[in-house]
Structures are given as C-alpha cells and as structure tokens.
Design a protein around this nucleic acid. Structure first.
Lengths: 344, 344
DNA sequence: AATATTCACGTAACCGATTACGTAAACTAG
DNA sequence: CTAGTTTACGTAATCGGTTACGTGAATATT
C-alpha cells in the first residue's frame, strides 16, 4: 500500500480547490460547474487518480468483503464451492476473504475473530467436524453480520443454510443398485460430519425398505476417515463376512475407490459380481478402473447460491429489515459409469 | 458490519474519560494511571469491546490483506498452493483475499484493479495463460505493492518468482525410465503455459542426450489441453506409429492417465511393455490402475514460501529499503508407483 | 518557599473520502 | 433598484482509532 498514491488533496491543491469540490466533481454531483468538473477530470486522469475504496468503505462502515471459512481447500467439493463463491461474489461486487479451519475448532474460532475485526460484511461457513459450540457465529449475527451455513451445518443456530439433498442422493444411488437386480447391498458409512453421513444412511435404508429388501446390519460398516485406505480395509472385511454383498454404496468416493481395489484384488468382477457406487463425484472418479458411478453434488451452484443469499441478507440487514432464514436443499444427480453399468 | 459495535467513545463516555485515555489504557501505554487502566479494562471486558482493525489499518495505511490471484481454484496444484498460502498467512498475521482469473486476461486485470482499490499490502499471482501484458502488475509495484509471481511466471517483469524445477523433475523422470532399461521413450508435451512445458521438454531431451539415447521427433507429441481425453487420443496415435515406445513421459498427470487407458485398451502391459510417468502427482494418480508414477511438486511449500517472501517485501517496502528480486526454484521429487515399477 | 519535574489526563490533528450546511457572488424578478 | 433565488464553492463534521502536544495539579528538589 503506497503512501504516495494520488489523493483528492493532491488534486485539490494543484487546482486551488477544496477537497469536497474535487470529490463532487469526480462523482458528478450537481453543485459544481462544468468548467471545474472538466479541469478536475483531466488532472485526475493525468495523475492516474484511483479512489481509495478503503477510506470510503471505512466511512460507510461497509467492507464489501465476505469471509469464507471451510475445513479444507484441497478437497474436490470445497474447491468447487469456493469457485462458485468467488465468481458470483465478483459479479455482485464483493471480495472474498478465505480461511481454512483444517477441521480444528480453535482455528475456526480464530478465523471468525480475525474476520470480525476486519469488519467483514458477512460470513459463509462450513463447520469443522470439531465444532459443537456456535456462540462465535451467534455473536456475529447479533452484531448484524449475516452468517450462512453451507454443507456442514448445525441445528444449534438459526441461519440460512445450504445443503445438498444427501438423503435423496443416497436414495437414488441405492435405488439404482436395486434396479440392476442387486439385493445384498452393503453400505460403508462414515462417522465424521454426522449430518450428511446420517442422511446418506437414511436414504439407503429407506430405499431398501421401499423396495422390500431386508436391511442387514452386517452389511453396514463404519469408516471414520472415509479414506481410500479405510475403504479398502473395510471392504476386505465385508468380503470376508458371511454374506457377500452384490453391491456397495459408499458414503464417499475415496471409500468407493478403496472398495474397488479390494474387490478387484479378491477376484470379483465389477459390476457383475459386485457393483460399486460412491458419493460426491470427485474428479478422480472418472479415471479409476472401472470408472466409478457416483452421486454428483451441485458444489459450484451451492457456492453461487451462498453469495446470492448473503448479499440479500447484507442488504436487508443494512435496511434494518427482518431476515427470514430458510434451509435450501439442492438437488444431487446420479453420474452412472462402469462400476455399476459395466462396459458399454 | 454492525453500527452498534462498542467503540472507544462508548467506554469513554461511560467512564467520563476522553477517547485517547481509553485508547492508552487499552494499549497499556505509560501515561495512564493504574486505577484508570483497571476501570477501562473491566468495562471493555464487560461490553465485549473489540478493536476495530479496519479503522486502525486505515490510519496506518496498511490492510494486512494479501491478494492472491490464480487461474483456477479447482486444480490439485493450485488448491495446495492456496492451502500453503492461507496457513502461512495466518501465522504471519495476514488475511488472504482470493480471486480466480479463469484463465482470462480481462478477468485477471479486473481482479488486480479491485484488489488495488481495496488497498492490498501485496499480491501473489499465477498468471493466466492469456496474460502477455503485465503493465497492471508493474503499476502495483510502482505504488509500493510488492508482487510475487508463482508457478506461471513471466520474464517481462522484475519481481520475486517462485517456480518448481520443472527441468530437473523432467530430467529425473526420464532418467528413471532409462534406468528401467527403456530406450524408446516418448514424450507428450503441452502447448499452453509455455514456460513449464518447455522446461519439462528440455529436461526430457537433456536426459536422453546424457544417456546417449537418440532423440526421435516422432516420439514427441503435442497436446493442447493436456487433458485425459487428449492423452488418450494422442497415445493411440503414438501406438499406431512406426516406432512403438517402451515408455511415455507425460507433461501432466491427466495426460498420463489418458495414456494408461489407451495402452491398456491396446493390450500392452504396464510397465513391462510400456512404462508411464506423469507430472504433478495429482491426488487421482495414486488411485488409477496401475497407480501412476509422477513428479511431485512442492505446491504447499511454494505457497508458504510466497507468503514468507511477500511479508518480507512488505516490511522492506514500508521501511523504504531496496528489494532484491530473486527467482526461487523449488525441488521436485519422484513418486514412484506401479506404472513404472510394476507390482511389488 | 520557590522552582523543576513528573503524572495523568485532555485537545487537536490525522488517515481519505463524503455529506450536511453555510455563504459570497451572480443572477432573476417585480 | 431591491429582494429572492440560484450557482458554485468552502467549512465543518464524520467514520474509529492513534499520536504529538499541551497543561493543571501533584510531587520533588534545592
């Protein structure tokens, strides 16, 4: 930040005018003569004058900065969410201040406090897995800073929330496996991020029930990290069990990729013997062998929606109008590939 | 941003003090009595007073914001760079304002201007493929805003630059293939992002030469988008040529993944008939079949280094000290997997 | 006791721009 | 020719905090 940027004062002094007159000229205010206006414009042009938005925002008590806190940037889903957030924020005239909590509550708390002191106009946050207390977010809200929860949400506070329909996505995925004639459908679930995982589990169970398939406790395995490695070992356990599944619905793509590896290693065919479907449609999913069917989440659109909502809330908040909080459930879609459909 | 945050004025009025006295008390300045200090601290605590950093930064003409512009967030390499940037910036007490150019020069230009008006203290930028003019960056520099180029750099301006050793990485990759006894080593190069691609090509050629292998023009193919699809079709062309390669060094991992698909489809064994190695070690590379050997870039460290450098430059710039620009070349490392080593 | 020093605070200026308000000079109207 | 209006500007206040400077009262020194 230069100390030698051109200020209104520089222009005013050179033209023998007062600072407000220069301001009025540059902003095309009525109370200024055409001649002065022209002189000011020309000098401003010549000196490459740029308005100091920092000063204006300070005066107007509005930063045009939206804080974004997510658990991890290096994540297919979140990087797409951020992409949507940034592109839409640009359209709406806002800047994005980004922070990652690395799944730590302390870090998230620190991020919120830093943002608060930086006078963000609003916060879009996806909670860390270790966040159970949301007083820091309620405090922001209480001070007229709109907060929007995205993906990893909580019921512990009233706010606009954006999620994708994990339940329906899981239901459709399971339904798809059923439509292939599979009857012994396993599910590898996760324990972290309770909300989405629970919803996926619920979708799985409901689909089984709706199609009159027996829910078998043995066919449901829990994975803590939902990683490729855990997917691999968990699937090996599944395959060594009494009931060998003929399909596996995994709560995440990495888990599904681990499952594919285990299934191939044990000599089963995919999808003939065991079909596999994941969740989230990671970019890697199309390149594994066989390419993985998955449930695609509207990540980019969720980010875009978050900006649309928060800019509205910021506006309402400035006008001291009441804000009605809704939860926006966005549709998922099935992306079918060889891991369920087989070779074309 | 609330209009009703607690200000020094509120505390001052309640205690019958002047605003500067409250300020001195809270900042533990000497010219204030212990009794007053205690009273101020207690009331500040009670009212949850938070310093308005926005105001202080405005006064100090320093925003503690570092602007970051990259072509795309949804990219394994860049998301890791940003991760390093954010974590290190947090340590150094800076905030990150993020923007993506989507590989558009106009968009990049707009981002730079917006950041400039927001009074960023420094800019870390990875140029879009369509950026040939860097006047916008030179302008920032001329106004004491340090600019650091990362990965996609240019020689058109003097600035600190951070790249990874594409040349050596490519050399090592080729050398590794040679060490496996491969003699007909093909290279799939790209045309975008000339600098890195050219360096990778140069590393490939030099390694061949150093090990007395013939450089064969036919074994080098150009891919514009370096995508999986292009890698696939390009490899099919290679395999239909007169000289069938016994190894392929691809300029990117997606290309290599496409190559693997084509090689498997044509019935060749990997790595026995044809070994494959990529570049960048995308997260998907470990899950393809066979797992892909690749050249790992120090993405996270590059981001971290960028923050270290820019905070130093900001400091020097504030002290009006001269800044010496260097180009930091960071080491790559080989990540060897089955696509060159075979099954263990 | 007279003077010097320290203490503890208040006042004013500032960061860069905007905006409400005030006011000479010029213009208009009756 | 005077009163009212418009024009085109300047002055002052503001945003929230920091800092240089000034000052009366208390304390210390000779």
């Amino acid at each position: 930040m230069s100390k030698h940027n051109i200020r209104l004062k520089d222009i005013a002094e050179e033209l023998g005018l007062s600072i407000p007159s220069v301001s009025r000229a540059l902003n095309n205010k009525p109370d200024i003569s055409e001649g002065t206006k022209k002189k000011v414009f020309e000098l401003a042009e010549k000196l490459h004058y740029q308005r100091n938005e920092f000063a204006i925002n300070f005066k107007n008590q509005q930063s045009f900065i939206i804080g974004v806190i997510i658990p991890q940037i290096v994540h297919h889903f979140f990087s797409n969410v951020i992409s949507g957030i940034i592109n839409q924020a640009d359209i709406m005239g806002y800047n994005i201040m980004l922070f990652q909590s690395n799944e730590s509550f302390e870090s998230e708390l620190k991020g919120v406090k830093t943002f608060q002191k930086s006078m963000i106009d609003g916060l879009i946050i996806s909670l860390s897995d270790n966040t159970h207390d949301v007083e820091h977010l309620k405090y922001l809200q209480a001070h007229n800073v709109p907060v929007i929860l995205i993906d990893k949400i909580t019921n512990a506070m009233d706010a606009a929330k954006i999620i994708c329909d994990d339940y329906k996505g899981a239901y459709y995925a399971t339904e798809h496996l059923i439509s292939l004639g599979k009857t012994k459908i396993a599910h590898i679930t996760g324990s972290l991020n309770p909300y989405t995982t629970k919803e996926r589990f619920r979708g799985y169970k409901t689909a089984l029930k709706d199609y009159n398939l027996v829910f078998t406790e043995h066919l449901v395995k829990k994975c803590n990290l939902v990683s490729t490695e855990e997917g691999y070992t968990t699937t090996l356990t599944l395959l060594a069990g009494e009931i060998i599944p003929d399909a596996i619905f995994c709560a995440t793509d990495p888990t599904a990729i681990g499952a594919i590896k285990a299934i191939k290693e044990k000599g089963f065919r995919i999808p003939e013997d065991i079909a596999v479907i994941g969740f989230s449609d990671w970019n890697m999913s199309s390149v594994v062998d066989p390419p993985l069917s998955s449930v695609s989440q509207p990540d980019y659109e969720m980010g875009k929606k978050a900006i649309e909502l928060i800019t509205q809330e910021i506006q309402l908040s400035r006008e001291n109008k009441p804000i009605e909080y809704q939860t926006y459930v966005m549709e998922t879609s099935l992306v079918l590939r060889e891991s369920t459909l087989g070779k074309k």
